[in-house]
Write a protein that binds this DNA or RNA. Sequence first.
DNA 1: CTCCCTCAAAGATAGCACCATTGCGTGGGA
DNA 2: TCCCACGCAATGGTGCTATCTTTGAGGGAG
Lengths: 239, 239
Amino acid sequence: MMAQQNDKGESGAGRLHRRMLDAVGEAIASGRYEPGYRLTLDALQREFGVSRTVARDTMRVLETMNLVTSRRRVGIVVQDPAQWNVYDPQLVRWRLTSPRRDEQYASLTELRIAVEPLAAAGAARRASATQRIELTRLAADLRRLGESGDLDAFLDADIAFHRLILSSSGNEMFAALEGMVAEVLTSRTRQGRMPFHPRDEALDAHERAAAAIARGDANDAEASAREILHEVRGALNLS
Amino acid sequence: MMAQQNDKGESGAGRLHRRMLDAVGEAIASGRYEPGYRLTLDALQREFGVSRTVARDTMRVLETMNLVTSRRRVGIVVQDPAQWNVYDPQLVRWRLTSPRRDEQYASLTELRIAVEPLAAAGAARRASATQRIELTRLAADLRRLGESGDLDAFLDADIAFHRLILSSSGNEMFAALEGMVAEVLTSRTRQGRMPFHPRDEALDAHERAAAAIARGDANDAEASAREILHEVRGALNLS
DNA sequence: CTCCCTCAAAGATAGCACCATTGCGTGGGA
DNA sequence: TCCCACGCAATGGTGCTATCTTTGAGGGAG
């Protein structure tokens, strides 16, 4: 009867609950809604001009990410960051586009340093034949693109290289970090945060890692991956 | 008209959507609903005797975990495991109580091996004074309980020890793995999967790690943590 | 006769409004 | 001080409309 004043009129059309989710999620992730801040469904549906259904769905999703808890009579309470489900890719994205992006970047980089060497070792043991070949090809591409100076193409190849190591590691927990690594690498280049001129050592290490994985040498693969990440280490204020 | 035959009658009362979530989530995680299997809201609300609202909420949550996608006209489709949000603690739990628990256990253990050494190094740099003291105390407890043979108490202390390292690492991505580590350690003991008689080397390594963290020696902390995890490595069929 | 294109109907989610129930925190009264 | 009633806010339910998109039927062209 007098329902839809908003869904078709908006550019986004469908997925209007996605817009609300992004808005609220980003607000919490960025700290604009502090821990302890109380929301109510009523306020939310008025603020976003949506129905109770959509507001409820949205809050339910944020609840499973542990961004909020909802209790009767008290409302929807923003939780302490320590409780958050920080591996949720959506939350990672929100945090990477917020003022606190630097913390997030540092944490993710440290996680990369932890995971990628073992992922490389796993790949050396468990990658398929085609994955090994593809990895070798990508290492060669990296060499070529690095020397040609095409940073965008280099970034793409670099992402593909690291993704492939993770996904062929045979460990789905590692593979699930694909998107995170892509995000971090992209962010690194885009921001010039880590002045980016691929050094010979790095290119060598990529090739050595690819070769080690190709011939199934887990130890060397792990060591080479560690070397790849060595320069990254400098970006964090540790060691 | 024929609505609530179940919510009050059940012991759980409130959170009836939690029960449905667990049921469907566990079914998907265990592979009982294979990738590509199509659910519909109608079928779900009939199967679980819930209303559309609850069914929708539930599916929305599963959707943000990437366990399913819901497309118009086609229904709700179970996604490929590669897409799953495997770091969601809820999903971890479902997978650990499913027939495929062994894969999950192996993956998580490998992740521990990757993360804990770096977490220990981080703790050596960034732990608070009280955390360092507590860690030393826990290491001593472990020695005592290990020698006394009280496996349950040992498990509790072991969990506390590893949790504390993760949470004092200063990296919230590491800290978020607390629950996972607790789950893995518990599972290890409960199943006798890894025959558990704390060896002297392990107890020594725990004490060395605690001492290294206490005095801020990141390198030694990392090495000691690696040593702690060394015996765990044998449980996986790698290296 | 067959193939392809178009278009309409069907089936399913997306979303809305409104309603009853249930916890539970707070403040007023004994 | 303690207890209880009141009201707020979430939980869960019902029925409806809008919209999308798949699928299949029908018709025209080769």
